[in-house]
Design a binder for these strands. Structure first.
Lengths: 166, 166
DNA sequence: CTTGGAAAGTCAACAAGGCTGACGTAACTT
DNA sequence: AAGTTACGTCAGCCTTGTTGACTTTCCAAG
């Protein structure tokens, strides 16, 4: 059991050893985090990159390509390859902007929503199990540390995503 | 163990929306997590895979190739490519086992330790800042959730790594 | 109305780092 | 003596990232 909050500010949780354990925890947990969707995708022609695109299009329907570029942090060539296959396969619809016709607004089709749902269900099942096992207080701490770990600019992106209204 | 929160608790933290935020938090935080070492490595001939190898050899000096394979979860061909360059460049020493001469025991050289240190310093600096900002209780929750998110087998690997203190 | 520049798409080439399959060798185990 | 394990390696493939160069479309400012 990691230390109960040290009243005398012992800061035991900031030792190099503790920090290394945290680093390793991130490494192993991220493997688990991606494992289930990866398993689903490995039979299809898609990969993790497609999953990410589906996730964020689901999250922000009508988002533009450049919005997505900013969020995903990849080059447009890289994203375009992924997006093209999703559009070609009828999972994503790219509508020309009404106001600005250069823009493409992205939406999931029925088929796209189904795959997104399948991937998301698997990933959320793991998160839910972890959250349930850890309890609400641990979850709050988890989110706090992760947010503090983000680059400030990414943190804004993260916080800008639809909030869970109170 | 935190209590399974019976009827009284709202379980608001288990809504799909909360779970999605957790998923996104993992995504963005992992980007931050790897950003600093990646920046250091991008000037060299090395990448994230080399960093991981250095980290775990540092962590468990004398570990064997197959140990490392298990921990990293990649094929031997993939690891070998990385390991070969590290050995060729004099960052890692591979000593033939005394007891079992088929095994190679891996150690960081002086040069290897220096690079590991540089990468680790960068990564720990970010972790330290996040930990400090979040506080000990949040850190405990962070670790709890991450552990719960790992595959059971990986969790054992993780826990088998050198523990901190008593 | 013209023009500058942003947004998007595309082609080509390349690299890192995964993967499979096949094969070889040394050394340990039975 | 035979089988298994640990390691290395060759060859080839895939995904997903990268640069660089170029075109088309089209909004907006001069």
């Amino acid at each position: 059991m990691p230390d109960p909050t040290p009243s005398g500010e012992s800061l035991l949780f900031l030792t190099d050893e503790q920090l290394r354990k945290g680093i390793e925890a991130m490494f192993f947990a991220y493997r688990g985090f991606t494992a289930d969707p990866d398993r689903i995708l490995e039979n299809m022609d898609y990969g993790r990159a497609h999953h990410r695109a589906l996730h964020f299009i689901h999250r922000s329907p009508g988002t533009t390509v450049s919005n997505l570029l900013t969020i995903l942090g990849v080059t447009k060539q890289s994203l375009n390859r992924v997006l093209r296959s999703l559009v070609d396969d009828g999972l994503v619809e790219a509508r020309v902007g009404r106001k600005d016709k250069r823009e493409r607004h992205l939406y999931l089709t029925q088929k796209g929503q189904e795959l997104e749902r399948e991937l998301s269900d698997a990933q959320r099942a793991r998160m839910r199990a972890a959250y349930r096992a850890a309890g609400p207080q641990a979850v709050a701490g988890f989110r706090t540390v992760l947010e503090a770990m983000m680059d400030p600019e990414l943190r804004k992106q993260y916080q800008g995503l639809k909030e869970a209204g109170p």
